[in-house]
Design a protein around this nucleic acid. Structure first.
Length: 276
DNA sequence: ACCTCCCTGGCC
DNA sequence: GGCCAGGGAGGT
């Protein structure tokens, strides 16, 4: 799934290509991909002919600055990817939006399960959209541990679903939440408020190494290959995952069997031998 | 703070 | 044929 590392890798690949480039033809293949655009017709009109001044990331959102207060916002959902392709290359199935760059390749938004979306928003529209509700970025603005202790104090909800709450920390999804908890030796079902200061500090300390290790390998492409780099290659972090998707296999740290439980309807993988 | 729903491909 | 994967919006 595209989580913070996959979105950041996508950004790093796209940024040198789109920055300063003028947008040519914009083709919408699947209207649903624009469902967060207040008036879907605005999308192509606002994008065409403009230059992308910068491409940034907040949590799992890609943000293209178009100037004049307009922002090209894209969320890859659970199966979305951005592909860079020449206009003569055939379009992959489930191509939702094709943005041609003048004197450059096409940027194609491909999304089989259609949970992703893209839009060009004014500052006011952006202030009411998803990115405005994000907490601090898990990579660029990770809060100090006392701040996290305060945010978790008294909360009885299990810690794992809280790590997925983008208002607490922006960028972690189901894979990296499990990986971070494993590295920090904290069980996913521990009531958040029961974590002591040392455990919260360990959790905080685990975030960056996990995300950066994934970044170095191009992110996690699962067996379905829904997530791919913009050049079509698969990310290689799958084989380095410590627990996610590894139920029954040996824990890389203690050798015990990785277990699976369901929290809030989502799988959580952990090792009861080394997570407390 | 919780639940439901959206959607498709892959697998049993 | 039915279930599972899952991020986030929207509703209660």
């Amino acid at each position: 799934m595209p989580e913070l590392p996959e979105v950041e890798i996508t950004r790093r690949h796209l940024e040198p290509v789109v920055r300063g480039a003028r947008v040519g033809e914009v083709a919408v293949r699947r209207a649903r991909a624009l469902r967060l655009q207040p008036h879907p017709g605005d999308f192509a009109v606002r994008l065409q002919g403009r230059r992308v001044l910068a491409l940034t990331r907040q949590g799992k959102y890609l943000l293209g600055d178009l100037g004049d207060g307009l922002t090209w916002v894209t969320h890859l959902g659970m199966s979305g990817r951005m592909s860079l392709a020449g206009r003569e290359e055939p379009e992959a199935p489930h191509t939702a939006v094709v943005v041609s760059l003048e004197a450059g390749p096409q940027v194609r938004f491909v999304d089989p399960r259609t949970f992703g979306h893209t839009a060009v928003l004014t500052a006011d529209e952006l202030a009411a959209a998803g990115p405005a509700r994000l907490g601090p970025d898990a990579l660029d603005a990770l809060p100090r541990s006392p701040v996290l202790v305060a945010r978790l104090a008294g909360r009885r909800a299990p810690i794992k679903p809280l790590l997925l709450d983008q208002r607490l920390l922006a960028g972690l999804g189901n894979i990296y939440a499990d990986e971070v908890l494993h590295r920090a030796r904290v069980r996913p079902d521990r009531p958040a408020g029961s974590l002591n200061r040392e455990e919260v500090a360990a959790l905080r300390r685990a975030v960056r190494p996990v995300l950066e290790a994934s970044l170095r390998r191009g992110g996690t492409s699962l067996a379905d290959l829904a997530y791919l780099l913009p050049d079509g290659r698969a990310g290689g972090y799958l084989e380095r995952l410590a627990v996610y998707g590894r139920a029954g296999e040996p824990c890389r740290r203690c050798g015990g069997a990785v277990e699976r439980m369901v929290l809030r309807g989502r799988s959580a993988y952990f090792c009861s031998g080394c997570q407390r």
